[in-house]
Design a binder for these strands. Structure first.
Length: 297
DNA sequence: GCGCTCCCCTAGATTCGGCA
DNA sequence: TGCCGAATCTAGGGGAGCGC
């Protein structure tokens, strides 16, 4: 995730706060306000994130400018006395795992921000106040981006600018109207794939999130019993799921139970391939189908 | 006890009108 | 034109309850 904090531990395309404030996405008017903000940033935030977090006051009282600054510099949530955004949580997870989030380390990244573990290298200054689901969606989006399938940009009317390979976040911009269908859209033929992202519990929400459109489940599921009944597998397929990705530990227990009960034959999707798969296989599978045939999933 | 469904609460996102 | 704040809408998490 791009961070314009000049002291971001993962590296930054800018070397000073002056360069950060010159970036067009900050939309700052030249003049007194910009000068004051630069002065404040240089005096209060002239160092990298730290552990424990530092609780400085916000560098500006202009809420809109502050919002854009924090969005562009998520490292600041380690240094400003404000509740972090979901984007910031994902970036701080990146800092904790020491690099970009991939399908190989996304479970580790998930655990970093989990309330029971909290393995921050650079903790947020305040607790996250929002919905955990947004963090899960952004973790999945980061995995795709790291695999060369980035999120599509929004145009000035908030519609996604289609490009391939790429993915669309269904909770941003005008596509938010379609959020009921899922969380992330992967362009595919003959029908697009819709990813439904969940945290640790699938419950009935995952089941009914597919809406009979070809769907993919992506989650940090920790309860294999939610997946191992014959009826549940039949329902997942009937609702349109082609694959459900989960942590290795959960999948191992699930597969042992399926074998013990003689139910392996039900854990196969409409294409004749595995319905349940490890998260570490996610990127390879998405590469195989993005912009191509969903029948190869 | 297990599997499943329903419901409430919370908080983010969006919209809209007023204002500088 | 851009910003701000209030109102409204919406989805997800968590837990309660039901049937077997």
């Amino acid at each position: 995730m791009l961070c314009l904090h000049p002291y971001c531990p993962l590296g930054s395309p800018v070397s000073s706060w002056a360069e950060t404030l010159d970036r067009p996405e900050l939309k700052l008017r030249p003049g007194i306000e910009k000068s004051a903000l630069l002065s404040s940033l240089n005096s209060l935030f002239g160092a990298p994130p730290s552990k424990p977090a530092i609780l400085q006051s916000a560098p500006t009282t202009n809420a809109a400018a502050l919002r854009r600054l924090l969005r562009s510099c998520p490292c600041l949530y380690n240094q400003v006395d404000l509740a972090p955004s979901a984007h910031a949580i994902v970036h701080l997870c990146e800092l904790s795992v020491g690099g970009r989030i991939t399908d190989a380390n996304v479970v580790e990244a998930f655990k970093v921000q989990h309330p029971k573990t909290l393995g921050w290298a650079y903790p947020p200054a305040r607790d996250f106040q929002g919905m955990g689901g947004t963090i899960m969606e952004l973790l999945c989006s980061e995995v795709l981006t790291s695999a060369g399938i980035p999120a599509m940009e929004l145009d000035n009317k908030n519609w996604p600018v289609w490009r391939m390979p790429g993915h669309i976040l269904l909770n941003e911009g005008k596509m938010n109207d379609l959020k009921a269908l899922g969380d992330i859209l992967i362009p595919c033929a003959p029908t697009n794939l819709v990813i439904s992202v969940k945290s640790e519990k699938a419950k009935e929400r995952l089941l009914y999130s597919a809406n009979s459109i070809e769907g993919i489940g992506f989650g940090f599921f920790d309860t294999p019993s939610e997946f191992w009944t014959k009826r549940r597998m039949q329902l997942y397929k009937r609702m349109g799921f082609s694959a459900i990705y989960m942590p290795d530990t959960t999948l191992d227990i699930l597969n042992l139970k399926l074998d013990a009960d003689g139910n392996r034959q039900y854990a196969v999707n409409i294409n004749g391939t595995a319905l349940y798969r490890p998260l570490t296989q996610f990127c390879e599978d998405m590469h195989n189908v993005v912009g191509r045939s969903a029948f190869d999933l």
